[in-house]
Design a protein around this nucleic acid. Sequence first.
DNA 1: TTGCTTGTTGGTCGCACACTCAATAGCATC
DNA 2: GATGCTATTGAGTGTGCGACCAACAAGCAA
Lengths: 213, 213
Amino acid sequence: MPSSVPNKRIRKSPAARRAEIVAAASAVALSEGLECITLRRIAEELAVRPGLISHYFPAVEDLVAEAYGDAVGAELDALLPADRAGASPTRHLARFFARATGPAFDDISRLWLNARHLSRYRPALRERVAVQEAAWRDRLESLIRDGVEQGEFRTDDPMVAAIQILVVLDGLGMLVNSADTEDDPPAVRRLPITTAERELGLAEGALTAADTD
Amino acid sequence: MPSSVPNKRIRKSPAARRAEIVAAASAVALSEGLECITLRRIAEELAVRPGLISHYFPAVEDLVAEAYGDAVGAELDALLPADRAGASPTRHLARFFARATGPAFDDISRLWLNARHLSRYRPALRERVAVQEAAWRDRLESLIRDGVEQGEFRTDDPMVAAIQILVVLDGLGMLVNSADTEDDPPAVRRLPITTAERELGLAEGALTAADTD
DNA sequence: TTGCTTGTTGGTCGCACACTCAATAGCATC
DNA sequence: GATGCTATTGAGTGTGCGACCAACAAGCAA
């Protein structure tokens, strides 16, 4: 009785297997980084042989790009839902910052940093990064535009305002691997919110209201 | 007559050789990235054998950290000289932005991005990044402080102002591998300058004056 | 139950990497 | 010109990577 590694083959539909692989790679990307997505690593994760990963992704680079897109895309949906029901733009933006400035966002910051650097060498990843950058920008711009229409925000150029907010968010995200997110002055940690309140003509504290649920 | 690779050994003093190695690694870091600093690559660059690099840097990670520190430290000195003679703080800051927002700065942006990501896995590099972060911040803060004393700038907290400027600069630097630096709106490209003028109580355009020599 | 499609395996190849160490040869010193 | 120190070489070790492919077997269809 070969107790170790029964080696029972489990045969799945291509679609299911592929999704499973992307999900595993996405999890590895978030927790350990994109360079840890290797044939052997993902195969081990799913208890299959490395060759199987190669079968679905003949070039690993494509799996890396897919994993990145999956993780970052899911986060965007959680952060800024495509269809905003119920709450006001201000409420949505407050929720956005509540999540995007907390330590729970660190893994995402690391992933962005990771992808932006690695895309220097990986064309497939570079394209995905461009797509996600546009998606994040558009989603935020659209929220701002709604806020302006509803008279909650005031800005000349919603797109520039959106970019400005994201730039500050990215700038702080750059520090995620160096210092503890906790130990810089509050004025610095609140920089994205301050920026947003200023650029959108909001009162100070308008985006930190406690009722962000 | 062995025309190919005469293999003539050239014997140098340890200090000179070490400096030569760091310089070569620093150049590679700037042009190709920190992960291209390998024993073979640097050895080839200097026409020596890989073992020699190992002799001076038993752990490659230390060479990587050194190369990064060398490149980024030199840039800081060019950008914000330690002893500012002659020109006024405003003039110095204008010169700083003239250099730091142009495409000539792209290699430095890439290196910062590279180092900040890679420091996730390399403790020695992480420490160097922390040191350089502090150095850049301190140098800028000191310039701002002087400007305040001389009545040219106006800010409550020079340190927060300095950090804020660097965060915006970093945030834009994040984009260096995705899009052309040229094709985002001028309002975005001028973000660091706008931020500085706002935070330091300067008139719009005060930091873009043509006389930055 | 049989047959067949195809998802999956196991093994292998070549490459690039960091690191080690005894042997070699510049070169300063005498 | 001989000598000794030591900077430098050459050769080798082990690891992990992506990619490739013939052979195998799971599970659906007949």
